[in-house]
Write a protein that binds this DNA or RNA. Structure first.
Lengths: 132, 132
DNA sequence: CTGTATCCTGCCGGATACTG
DNA sequence: CAGTATCCGGCAGGATACAG
């Protein structure tokens, strides 16, 4: 039988689109990347993912936990201690993500050069937003 | 010698962060994914990337072109014809991206199952936004 | 067909305060 | 420490109209 066609992220109706956005989103990718290198506690993560607010980190972690990519281990001690770590699926996703991140980081000289050329051509008209 | 430390996406000051966001962003990832399978013209892309508006597609393409990931080939014919295709660097990025996309699509059953469990536990309190 | 310009709204996400 | 609750400004991004 055919259970195919399955999930297509190019279809805006498909739930995979939402998950992809959780994973590739602004904070999702960095959070997964940070967790890949070592399981962490909340404020540890907050420090590694430079610039994230408490609110967004919390929100991001919940979304990733819900999608089964992150496991949350809360210990009812005092003071409370909570450890976050990737699930097996989360690891697989994070590996791809890290590959992408390393690639981008490694090729930034090329990117920067391309930007220079583009901006020179267009007399510094803006296209997309600069770079944050 | 040491030109190291180089680019670190975890640092919010680093320009690589901006590029990563162009690449993984809501429309960036889908646009690169669509372009990987075949160079396309504007409205062709618009159809493949279900849900994108003219404005956002245009904006996304410009950002990717500026970063040197997409090449724009405009022919001054009438009616005008413009072809977009990935640069070599763009291809490398898109490959990783596609790998990630395929992985997510293929594992959606697990993701959906995890969501079900999560929502059951939390009595349907919302965490992150559902899925869009 | 391939875009750009303009308007407008929703919601992303930062700041702050508070709880266990 | 580990979060949640609330407020609210800015901008992402959709709709529409227009241009080459």
């Amino acid at each position: 039988m055919d259970d195919s066609i399955a999930f297509d992220v190019f279809d805006r109706q498909c739930p995979s689109r939402g998950t992809l956005e959780h994973v590739t989103g602004r904070w999702g990718s960095l959070t997964l990347g940070a967790l890949y290198e070592s399981g962490s506690r909340f404020n540890e993560l907050r420090r590694r993912v430079d610039g994230v607010s408490e609110k967004m980190l919390s929100q991001t972690l919940h979304a990733l936990e819900r999608d089964g990519l992150v496991h949350r281990d809360a210990q009812p001690t005092n003071p409370p201690r909570v450890d976050y770590e990737l699930t097996p699926l989360g690891r697989e996703v994070a590996e791809r993500l890290l590959g992408l991140i390393r690639l981008v980081e490694g090729r930034m000289p090329e990117v920067l050069a391309a930007r220079g050329r583009y901006d020179a051509t267009r007399g510094s008209e803006r296209a997309g937003r600069g770079g944050r």
